[in-house]
Design a protein around this nucleic acid. Structure first.
Lengths: 342, 342
DNA sequence: TTGAAAGCGCTAACAT
DNA sequence: ATGTTAGCGCTTTCAA
């Protein structure tokens, strides 16, 4: 190895001094003569010496690297989060090692092991839809590695978290649907083992109750993917009492819902208003454009890194924090805007 | 450090043998007695000993980590490539460290430095739109680190590459437009300092010539973003001789073009056929759906990693390879399909 | 003001 | 069959 890489020893030899002197000179320690320091600095500059981070890690025990596990990178939301993570991490002098679980529990466990074994200083995770056993997360804590969950969190562990106010976002979305005149609003919900799935449903329910609308079990349907929507939504449109509003747990589902509604011969938003969650790039591209709840992924990423680095670098043991990022209802073309009830 | 981390020494001490014996036992060397091996393996199992990769790296000089630099992760194409990279890298026992240049030259240079200083074993890059100085890439070679370019390559360096057959893809796209009856086809092109920009334009030109159509300079317009399209396309639609076909260098530009065409009161594909490049998820969501050239990003990622790992692990110095991934014209709703001329 | 020595965790050549 | 030693590149006492 070290093809051409200059080491401390090389510098020392060239200057006829010892490696430890060079090391100290580089750290500007007071007990090294200015002349020596100058000589060292000049040679270091000339030879472009860079300390080997691996040796540093071996000594110090940390790697200046954080690990990230996301379900799937090919998602607008996650890629914005990652973007935020990357930006702040690099600005803070950390590298980012990343894994995708591909929504597979096994893959998530393996990724945790991989990250742990590569001795990252901290880990950022958004859990898969199917994770129900949390021992691998415990292992992270047991290894003394700080852990921050974002978006899809794990409630069984007391850790730092960054989430959006899903419940409020959902409430706002449904409030918007109600205020635009919808009488029969269906919620296409996420898996209820995921906090975000639960919260968004809770917001839906709370909004209906708040505006004195009946909450019907049949109007809450687990459906959080394009595939599910393409079978579920046509059935909805064949009901005797058709829905005139749909609040979907994510944009992709909402978009497929719009498509299905149109294929069933109905109009969006005239017959059915549709609202999604994420407000991703695609929500501006559909026709009509999709009303959606903005999630601020980039900011989530930055906050998560900030929390993690604090935890890594601070000695003190603060209690776990949960940072809540505010959502924002963005009204676009897929929902009617008439008949305000407020 | 090493809170609770078991080391070789711990194992050795517990067993009353030397660390080197433990090390050899773990590697199943023939000169260790079966009894010792068994004892070691059992304790290792029991204590869940894992060799420290940092110490390993310090010894061996490699980190089992590859670095990736992409312009922007929030792009369907790049996120699919990264997905492919990640999948194959992990299957091959490598970690992935990744940076985004955000289409900034400075950021790209800094990312190279960061990756180099964290001693990755190899680097995968897709260059920014604005990179015109290639010294930072040379530095990678000078450090003896294998380097593979993908998609947006650098022609000034003799390295391994993975590209799609942009020229052929563009040719096919334009051929499709011609065969569906377009008489006046505009190319919204990428920057010509990028090989992909050049190749796609070349394919456009070759197709026109092949079918005996005039090539007009005014029909080749640098326009490769949503923003540019929103100003460029309305102007096109006001021309005396309006375009009846548009071949855009990427999907996002094509989609914005469709939107502008409709805003100008024309129909897609009746008045103007539009074809994009990438065939990303969004191309299925627009209405009409976007005809586009499929780029197989996931496969590009896998091939790039394969090439890189070969280079890292093989001693022999094969000549540089360029792997070309075939594109595929996917006809959807944004282009007419009548009047075949073949 | 400088240097020698030990050690981070592991391996490999060289004893024993 | 097992142990000793040295060394990867660096930092940090401690001694000179």
């Amino acid at each position: 190895m070290n093809k051409g890489q200059v080491t401390l020893k090389d510098i020392a030899k060239e200057l006829g001094i010892s490696p430890s002197t060079v090391s100290k000179a580089l750290k500007d320690q007071p007990d090294i003569s200015p002349i020596t320091k100058k000589a060292v600095r000049e040679l270091v500059e000339k030879w472009n010496y860079k300390p080997d981070p691996i040796a540093l890690s071996l000594k110090s025990g940390h790697t200046k690297t954080i690990g990230v596990i996301v379900p799937e990178i090919v998602h607008y939301f996650f890629s914005t989060v990652i973007s935020g993570i990357e930006d702040l991490a690099y600005d803070s002098g950390y590298h980012v090692m990343f894994c995708q679980s591909n929504e597979s529990y096994e893959r998530e466990v393996k990724s945790v092991d991989a990250l742990l074994s590569s001795r990252v200083d901290g880990i950022l995770i958004s859990v898969t839809k199917v994770t129900e056993d949390f021992r691998h997360f415990r292992k992270i804590r047991d290894n003394g590695i700080p852990l921050v969950f974002f978006d899809r969190i794990c409630n069984d562990l007391d850790t730092d978290r960054v989430v959006v106010d899903d419940e409020v976002g959902a409430f706002d979305a449904v409030k918007h649907l109600i205020s635009s005149g919808c009488k029969n609003i269906v919620h296409l919900s996420g898996p209820q083992n995921l906090q975000i799935g639960k919260s968004r449903k809770d917001g839906y329910v709370r909004a209906l109750k708040f505006f004195d609308r009946p909450v019907e079990e049949g109007n809450i349907i687990k459906c959080d993917s394009k595939e599910e929507a393409s079978t579920v939504v046509p059935l909805l449109m064949k009901r005797a009492i058709r829905p005139d509003g749909i609040f979907a747990v994510n944009d992709l589902t909402a978009i497929e819902a719009m498509k299905m509604i149109k294929e069933c011969g109905f109009d969006v938003p005239e017959d059915v208003s549709v609202v999604g969650f994420t407000n991703g790039m695609i929500s501006d591209i559909t026709c009509p454009t999709l009303s959606s709840v903005e999630q601020h992924g980039y900011q989530i990423g930055r906050e998560a890194v900030k929390l993690l680095i604090n935890r890594i670098e601070k000695k003190d043991d603060l209690p776990s924090q949960t940072i809540v990022i505010k959502t924002e209802m963005v009204v676009k073309g897929s929902s009617r805007t008439n008949k305000a009830i407020h």
